[in-house]
């Protein structure tokens, strides 16, 4: 059973009055992550909205030791810290439970710029949790395309809508044979919380990706952050799953879509609600472009259904 809202801990690791936009999905997600990790953790951040949200020196909006790192070291910086901690413990210079080392990185930092060092850290199975909060663009620099931007989406670098589908990053991480991979999103805080608690108690490399609908990049109304996240799950654009030691399990309600108990809702309403897509409707090829978006979703559902059957 998923942890209910009322059972979530009081701990607030994200402090009020931070620098994020109102309704920010990254902050929303990080708050729940904080409840699962508690204060005994070390946070690493690559340049992103979550860095801009930290606030102005000498104040800091996150209640952890935070280290700002470069994109290229998204994976390796956490490796260095986690190894150092282990050695300090071995030498008796650190007592008690070791802090959880976690990277908090955007989709640009994960899918594109930081991928090499992340892949290497995963191959070494270094002890950390790597979070990707995925707002499907480089939001902090004014919304450019990333490898996570879905086909059809307008960004400042795809002025006629992106022509390529997004990568399946969580699956790529799974294929590194790491002990734990999960996907989550802000509309399902109990699901996210449970996954982070699980990851915290597994040694080695853990990858958790959180879909973070950003009103500014996706061009919907600010109060609708959670609605958009829920909609993405209901239409199958985002699948909730986790994999312990390589075995994929889908979580509710994605599990019902995968098993065929429930039909995925058509993507149309999701597309209409977001300026990044609904500009397509003005073109003469609108129908075909929307069909492409639906096609990518259908393909991913079908593909993941089959991929999950491989358990060897």
């Amino acid at each position: 059973m998923t942890t209910s809202i009322k059972k979530l801990p009081d701990t607030e690791q994200v402090l009020s009055g931070n620098g994020a936009c109102g309704g920010c999905p990254a902050t929303m997600a990080l708050r729940i992550v904080g409840k699962a990790l508690g204060s005994n953790a070390i946070m690493l951040l690559t340049p992103s909205c979550s860095v801009a949200s930290m606030g102005m020196t000498p104040k800091l909006a996150y209640n952890w030791p935070c280290i700002n790192i470069t994109f290229a070291t998204a994976g390796s910086s956490a490796s260095g810290i986690t190894h150092a901690l282990e050695i300090m413990k071995e030498k008796g210079r650190l007592q008690g439970e070791l802090p959880t080392v976690f990277s908090w990185v955007g989709d640009g930092g994960t899918y594109d710029i930081g991928f090499q060092a992340l892949s290497a850290a995963a191959e070494r199975n270094d002890n950390m949790i790597f979070f990707c909060y995925n707002n499907e663009a480089y939001s902090n620099t004014g919304v450019q395309r990333s490898g996570a931007t879905p086909r059809g989406s307008f960004t400042t670098t795809t002025p006629t809508g992106k022509r390529q589908p997004k990568k399946n990053m969580a699956l790529l991480m799974l294929e590194h044979n790491i002990p734990y991979v999960a996907t989550a999103t802000v509309a399902y805080p109990g699901d996210l919380y449970d996954k982070v608690v699980k990851a915290k108690n597994i040694p080695g490399m853990k990858y958790i990706e959180i879909l973070a609908p950003c009103y500014l990049g996706w061009q919907f109304d600010m109060p609708e952050t959670v609605q958009m996240s829920r909609m993405a799950v209901r239409n199958g654009a985002w699948l909730l799953w986790e994999a312990e030691n390589g075995k994929i399990d889908f979580n509710n309600p994605s599990s019902q879509i995968i098993s065929g108990k429930k039909k995925a809702e058509p993507v149309n309403e999701y597309v209409m609600k977001q300026g990044r897509f609904n500009r397509l409707l003005k073109g003469s090829d609108a129908e075909q472009r929307i069909a492409e978006i639906q096609g990518d979703i259908d393909h991913q559902i079908a593909f993941m259904r089959e991929r999950a059957k491989i358990t060897i």
Binding site: L15, S16, G17, G19, A20, G55, L60, A61, C66
Partner: peptide, 9 residues
Amino acid sequence: SWPMKGAGG
């Protein structure tokens, strides 16, 4: 920096 409310004002 140190954790504090109002880091963004």
